[in-house]
């Protein structure tokens, strides 16, 4: 029998720090990331009857965040692709962000990855989810997860090597 709704609500509250971290890894800026988490919470509660007793809440929620992000990205479409690089650039000169330059470099590199690669990285490398769990969340075979991760890593290593090289 599924947990009563009040229990579920509190479990979601407990998961919020991780959901925000995952959303930050896949969305383009902190504001979008929190909007994404908000949409995911709403969807999760509206569909809470679909949560099976044997499934892990974190995996289920990551899946909802991922789907919500893909829906959002699709609906924003072209506008996003045009403005995203400028938005990223704006943060660089902001003194509040200077102390977080390492984070910024990583985020900027992440933002350049294709959506599905970024999601794989967010799940496995940021959230520490197993390949198998990530495959279930992304609804793809494990082999697809590993190949996305391998390509993403290669791209990230190249970009981050560039960044650190440029800063020095």
């Amino acid at each position: 029998m599924p947990a009563p709704i009040e229990e579920l609500r509190e479990q979601i509250v407990g998961l919020l720090p991780r959901l925000r971290r995952f959303a930050r890894a896949i969305a383009r800026n902190p504001h979008d990331a929190d909007d994404l988490v908000q949409i995911a919470i709403e969807r999760a509660l509206a569909r809470s009857g679909q949560l099976r007793p044997d499934s892990r809440l974190s995996s289920w929620m990551f899946g909802i965040v991922r789907n919500a992000w893909i829906d959002e990205a699709r609906s924003r479409g072209r506008r996003e692709r045009i403005f995203a690089p400028a938005e990223l650039g704006e943060n660089i000169g902001d003194p509040a962000h200077e102390t977080q330059s390492d984070m910024l470099a990583v985020q900027e590199a992440m933002a350049r990855l294709p959506e599905e690669q970024r999601i794989a990285v967010g799940l496995v490398l940021v959230e520490g989810v197993s390949y198998k769990e990530a495959a279930e969340i992304m609804n793809v075979p494990i082999g697809t997860v590993t190949s996305r991760l391998a390509r993403a890593r290669e791209a990230l290593q190249a970009m981050l090597a560039d960044t650190t090289g440029a800063l020095r």
Binding site: P4, I5, L16, I41, E42, A46, S48, Q50
Partner: peptide, 22 residues
């Protein structure tokens, strides 16, 4: 980071699927 209040409020009050309440 502190979790924004609006997210906590959403988790506690957004409409839920009644089926989840057993």
């Amino acid at each position: 980071e502190p979790v924004p209040d609006r997210l906590i409020a959403t988790a506690r009050t957004a409409p839920a699927d009644r089926r989840a309440d057993n």
